[in-house]
């Protein structure tokens, strides 16, 4: 832990609501401990704005330990900022240089309408999953757990795909705003397990149709999605989806 402080300027997209016009506004932050997170720096800015009679900056967040997937915005043009495999809540001020200006913008995608400032509506992801991203099994009708054998490596691969936190960075980073990585990860997770087999084709078709219907674009192999994914989900899942559903 360091005892020096860091000075940053935040250039933030401000837009009160979906119908209002938006613009960038710059804020010079007070000197802060480099051990604070970027979201905590926003908390501090918001407290200052509040006391000055201005509207605080809206941004999505909750668990602040990189697992709930609520947080996410662009930092200097990169989804979740410059650190590899890191969601924006896990970015600490020590990751920046004294005097830096950071430009913060919301995810921009037709399927993620803006709510306020840095906050967007990602409910389209839930509608994709609702279209078939599950195993149809009612409570009580499950066979004994060890009746279904799953090889260790297969289980680990399925886990890797299932670790997607649904933050939307893949969509934000994609020039086509495609949700292919999100959809492919869910299809891959369930297709690797015996439980997922009976509905496999139906699921694949339903999710891909829903993806287009929600206004997400198509994949053109830019691979920006995998580069920004905080859970390092591989673009190989997209190839797998295209090959075998």
């Amino acid at each position: 832990m360091s005892s020096t402080t860091i000075r940053l300027t935040l250039r933030i997209w401000r837009q009160e609501g979906p119908q209002q016009p938006g613009a960038f506004v710059s804020y010079a932050l007070e000197p802060l401990s480099p051990d604070l997170s970027l979201l905590e720096a926003l908390d501090r800015l918001n407290e200052t704005l509040l006391m000055a009679g201005e509207r605080p900056v809206g941004f999505d967040h909750d668990c602040r330990e990189g697992i709930c997937g609520a947080c996410g915005f662009m930092v200097n043009g990169q989804a979740h900022g410059p650190q590899r495999a890191t969601s924006v809540c896990q970015l600490y001020l020590r990751h920046f240089r004294n005097g830096d200006t950071l430009t913060l913008e919301p995810w921009r995608a037709r399927a993620f309408p803006l709510q306020q400032d840095l906050s967007v509506d990602r409910s389209a992801f839930d509608r994709l999953l609702a279209a078939g991203g599950y195993v149809s099994v009612n409570t009580g009708s499950a066979p004994a757990a060890n009746a279904l054998l799953v090889g260790r490596e297969q289980a680990e691969q399925a886990f890797a795909a299932a670790s997607c936190i649904g933050c939307g960075a893949c969509v934000a980073a994609c020039p086509n705003a495609s949700a292919s990585l999100f959809v492919a990860a869910k299809l891959g997770h369930l297709a690797l397990l015996p439980q997922g087999q009976p509905e496999r084709q139906r699921r694949s078709t339903a999710l891909q149709i829903a993806m287009a219907a929600e206004g997400f674009g198509s994949c053109s192999n830019q691979l920006e999605c995998a580069a920004v994914c905080p859970k390092e989900i591989s673009a190989d899942w997209i190839s797998r989806m295209n090959r075998s559903g």
Binding site: V135, A142, P143, L149, A155, E156, A162, Q195
Partner: peptide, 23 residues
């Protein structure tokens, strides 16, 4: 407690496995 594990496995929860495929 046991029936919970059955249900979760059936839902596709990727629990850790032994090489033989058991939980």
């Amino acid at each position: 407690s046991g029936a919970i594990i059955d249900q979760c496995v059936a839902q596709g929860v990727p629990f850790a496995r032994e090489y033989g495929g058991t939980l």
